[in-house]
Write a protein that binds this DNA or RNA. Sequence first.
DNA 1: GCCGAGGGATTGTTCAACAAAAGCTTAGCC
DNA 2: GGCTAAGCTTTTGTTGAACAATCCCTCGGC
Lengths: 218, 218
Amino acid sequence: MASTAQRTADLLRRRITQGALAPGTRLSEEALGEAMGVSRNTLREAFRLLAHDRLVAHEPNRGVFVRRLEVADITDIYAVRTTLESAGVRASATAPAGQLRAVAEAVEAGEAAADAADWGQVGTADLRFHQALGALSCSSRIDTYLAGLLAEQRLAFATMPSQRLFHEPFLRRNRTIADLLTAGRTTAAEDALHRYLEDACRTVLDALQLQLQLQEGP
Amino acid sequence: MASTAQRTADLLRRRITQGALAPGTRLSEEALGEAMGVSRNTLREAFRLLAHDRLVAHEPNRGVFVRRLEVADITDIYAVRTTLESAGVRASATAPAGQLRAVAEAVEAGEAAADAADWGQVGTADLRFHQALGALSCSSRIDTYLAGLLAEQRLAFATMPSQRLFHEPFLRRNRTIADLLTAGRTTAAEDALHRYLEDACRTVLDALQLQLQLQEGP
DNA sequence: GCCGAGGGATTGTTCAACAAAAGCTTAGCC
DNA sequence: GGCTAAGCTTTTGTTGAACAATCCCTCGGC
């Protein structure tokens, strides 16, 4: 069985990535510890794990807060994703067949979820698709990096006004990239991926800036 | 002032990367805590930080051990470094001048250390050079990743039989890459970097396998 | 209105204790 | 003799309490 700290971190991670704990929320050691039935020490261990994933920010002597993504974070995340996922696409020629199948499966999962109008699941499938792209590099460290980036990304997703408007346009583009990949047209796939990530980055940035304006207004 | 856990982790990190704590060494909570004058709780926090950098491996209910790099680790580290450092080289055209200067400075530091026959410093300068290459991407996350990879890499350096034989051949190649970069010949620089990392990877692997054989012998 | 002192709340760190797991020893059996 | 298994020992996992250090807010003085 996983350790208590691990389980506590997992639970908090889920709450954060699902938006139940909004960015900027302060996570009090005493209150949370009591609520979750763990000691302060254990909770602090869990915080360390989450801080490592950049889901919370630890400010010394002040506490830990649910991470609030800034413009620089978004652009950086997308820049790194571009680097890592592109590397995966370029490595697709030498990747085992199973990895390519995982890409296709993620696309199908997304389409199925869209048919069921389950936009939360569409988001999950989308992240799985990009994780699968990175996995084409067959590098456990790249897998880890990308998993962290995508978890962080969820911080942005969770605060999106409409999951549907955000995810729907990208379903078809995922399909396009996957098809280009299975057809062996890696260069075309890489180009499509670049454009995809650029557009997605802009969309997220727009939504973020809209949010910041709304916050400043009142 | 940094927290006690942070300082403890830094001290241990230095001991590990300098080879004072050999790979495979078990780090007992009680013994180490007493030796370093910190409580078990604080030490556990420090362990988390080090585990995050992959300098130690945490085996549940068994303890933490100084990481022992395997063949798969070495190849993975070099593969990821290739991806990240290449991305930096490709971005060199748009990088601020200061970043390019940092690359040149790292090369010069390495040459100066070689003149002084300080091979430990040569190793440090070498890592700084590669960190500077990655920094050309102007991405804080890539910087973080590379810093972790290079710290992990030191685990391999520390067990090298001869620092000099290992580092000396790469001094000139660092210079070559830096010169190609400042000349704006990024494609040539990227090619040189690829060959460099391939050769370095092979060298480290050879040394590692030699070590494994020596261990198994008796 | 600005500045500093004081108080309250929260985190940082330590200690002591017990539960839980892993590894070693020893006893018993075939 | 070698193997299995129970029991013991050691170490980690987790908790609770305690105190110091730090930050933040409030209150008072100027």
